[in-house]
């Protein structure tokens, strides 16, 4: 049985003093050791395999409260609603018929749904990358414990605390033709200002920017929590090894942030795939069909076009898509970790 101090014992050997014969090889070895030490000591499966308390595994009854409530109020409604996806119910009538897979075929062959699909993918990639890069930068800049940083953290989180409908309303004015962004454009001599929400080509990027503005607050909180969980001694060890700022970021911080990134990426990706509120509050899918997303289409079909069965078929397909993408992301993040 290992003692709780095993991790520190493991970390010790990597504190190689810089030698006069040249730093780089030592740095390289040292850093790899830091990384390996960090991984082996904290990875639960490996710990179990190495003779951890294999007999002491939690029983299923611990999972019951969480799974129970979730099953009743999330899983059951999701399954129950899938029933309508195989009917032609318009959402109002007392009667409906089973139509088999007709709704699914119809969703997959619709041209407008293809537009909505590409828009959604574009938004998802944009939001996931944008929010995480921005969130990481802010988290790194503000990770030190100081009053100044606490205030700034709060401020960077504020946009996330703003409801999307309100964010959409404010940004409509910020983007408007005589709005502040236009003035900035003129001030910086950037030429003619873009049309932002009014232009078919720029409306989607403009909405993505609003979403990044909001989601980056969430990413920052998750990554800050991840940074707090990193053992300071690993940083210290790497520093003693002579690792520079960027090397420490590359070899210590980023690999150890992987679990936080896994959550943050899944969260921002799901936000992108289900993007709805901001679109409704700004363009409602326009101009033309430039910002239609899968979620706006789902809503319009189910609640405005009398196509409830059709909308539910879309919901099922979206569910499969989102589940597939997020499971794949978790798998990738896990695999990388296990391989290292």
């Amino acid at each position: 049985m290992r003692s709780p101090t095993a991790r520190q014992d493991e970390a010790k050997p990597v504190r190689v003093e810089p030698t006069s014969t040249g730093r780089s090889p030592v740095v390289g070895i040292g850093l790899r050791r830091v990384r390996d030490a960090a991984r082996t000591s904290v990875h639960p499966r490996r710990a179990l395999r190495n003779g951890g308390a294999t007999a002491q595994r939690p029983g299923f009854r611990l999972a019951l409260p969480g799974l129970g409530l979730y099953s009743v109020f999330v899983a059951y409604p999701a399954v129950a609603t899938a029933y309508y996806a195989f009917t032609n119910w318009n959402g109002l009538a007392q009667h409906w018929h089973f139509v088999g897979l007709k709704n699914f075929v119809s969703v997959l062959s619709s041209g407008l749904e293809r537009t909505a699909f590409t828009n959604t993918l574009e938004a998802t990639v944009g939001i996931a990358l944008g929010a995480n890069i921005l969130g990481l930068a802010i988290a790194l800049l503000l990770q030190k414990r100081s009053r100044f940083n606490y205030v700034l953290r709060l401020l960077w989180f504020l946009p996330a605390a703003l409801p999307s409908i309100v964010a959409g309303y404010i940004w409509t004015f910020i983007y408007s033709p005589s709005g502040p962004l236009d003035k900035v454009w003129v001030l910086l001599h950037l030429g003619a200002a873009p049309g932002f929400l009014g232009s078919p080509n720029e409306a989607l990027p403009s909405i993505i920017a609003i979403a990044i503005w909001q989601v980056s607050g969430y990413a920052m909180v998750l990554l800050l929590a991840g940074l707090q969980a990193i053992d300071e001694q690993l940083h210290e060890a790497a520093r003693v090894d002579g690792a520079g700022v960027l090397q420490r970021l590359r070899f210590v911080t980023l690999p150890l942030l992987r679990p936080a990134f896994a959550v943050s990426f899944v969260f921002s990706t799901v936000t992108g795939l289900l993007l709805f509120d901001v679109v409704v509050a700004t363009t409602n899918g326009g101009p033309g069909y430039a910002t239609e997303t899968l979620a706006t289409q789902l809503y319009k079909q189910s609640f405005e076009y009398n196509n409830f069965g059709w909308g539910m078929a879309m919901g099922v397909l979206m569910g499969i898509l989102v589940l597939g993408v997020s499971a794949a992301m978790l798998w990738i993040f896990n695999r990388k970790e296990a391989r290292a």
Partner: peptide, 20 residues
């Protein structure tokens, strides 16, 4: 048809932006 209004809105926007 419930779609007439939303489609006309989208198409009128396309006229406005020169897309249609």
């Amino acid at each position: 048809s419930p779609q007439t209004k939303t489609v006309w809105i989208a198409e009128a926007e396309d006229i406005a932006t020169g897309t249609a």
